[in-house]
Simulated assay, not measured.
Amino acid sequence: MKFENILVEKKDSLAQITINRPKKLNALNKATIKELNIAFAALEDDETTRAIILTGSGDKAFVAGADISEFADFSVEEGANLSRLGHEILFDYVANLSIPVIAAINGFALGGGLELAMACHFRVASDNAKMGLPEVSLGVIPGYGGTQRLPQLVGKGKAMEMIMTAGMISAEEAKESGLVNHVTTQEELLPLAEKIAGKITRNSSDAISAAIRAINAGFEEGVNGFDVEVEEFGECFGTEDFNEGTAAFLGKRKPNF
C-alpha cells in the first residue's frame, strides 16, 4: 500500500502505521484521516495481521492536533458533519477494530492526536511526550471522542480539568492517571510496543477480538456488557482456536493459533 501521508509496514503478523507529516507535526487533515481508514481496513481484511502499532514520524510528535485551516470557516452543520464523519471512518472505527491497536506516542499528542491515541486499545509513551486537549482555547470542544474517552480513562474530574484548562500533561502524569500504560525512552518506545504486541500475537486472535467487543460493550450506553460477555464467551466455544487452545493445555504443549 502506498500513501502520501502515512507509512505502512508489515512484518509477519505485526503491522505498523506511521503518520508521516513531520513538517506539520503529523497533524491530521482530511486526506490523512482517509488514508488511515483505508490502511486499517486493509490490515483488518488481512487474516495474517494480528496486532497493529500506530505512531508518528520523527521524535517531536505523535499527532499534534488537527489541521485547523481546513475547518476554520465551517458552519454549525459543517462542524457537526466533520465530527460525525471522523468518528465513523477513523476514531470509532479504530476503537472497534477486531485487531488490537497499540498507540506508541512519540511526542506531542494534542487535540485530535490524543483522541486518536485514546481510540486505540491502549497506549505506551516516550518520556518526552506531552498530551492534552486544547480545543476550548479555540472556542470549540474535542469533537473526535475526547469528551467521552478521556473521562473513561482518567476519571471525570481529571478529564474536566484537562479539557477546561486546555493544558498539557507529561508522560509520567499520563501514566499515573491511567491514560497510558507504560513510559519509556524515545529509543525504546517502538521496541517496547513490539514486545507487547509479540505477547498478544501468541494468543488466540478470535478470543482477543471477542474480548475487544465485550470490553467496549461495557462502555456503550444502553448495552449490558455482562450480557455481551456471556454471548462472546459462548461463541468462543465454536472456534478452532478454542479447540486448539484446550487441546494444547491438556496435552501440555504450546498452542498453535
Rank of each mutant, 00 (worst) to 15 (best):
F219Y: 14
G56D: 02
F74T: 05
V228P: 07
I52H: 00
S57Y: 01
G112A: 10
F219P: 01
A166L: 10
M131H: 02
L150A: 09
N96T: 11
T18Q: 07
K34M: 09
K24D: 14
A41D: 15
E221F: 08
E187K: 13
S83E: 07
A174P: 11
L82M: 06
D46Q: 03
L90E: 04
L110S: 11
I200F: 09
L43Q: 00
F122D: 07
V230R: 15
A197K: 02
R253E: 11
T246G: 02
N5P: 05
E176D: 15
D73S: 07
I196M: 01
D12T: 11
I19Y: 10
E77P: 00
P134R: 12
F3S: 11
L90Q: 03
M118H: 02
K24R: 13
L133W: 02
M164K: 13
I200N: 01
V180A: 05
D241R: 03
C236R: 15
S209V: 07
P22A: 06
N37C: 10
S13F: 12
K24L: 13
K23Q: 14
A171D: 12
A15I: 09
L189V: 04
K2W: 10
G167E: 11
D227K: 15
E115R: 04
D227G: 08
L189C: 02
I169W: 03
F249Y: 15
L114E: 08
P151R: 05
N128S: 12
G86S: 00
G143Y: 12
I99P: 00
Q186Y: 12
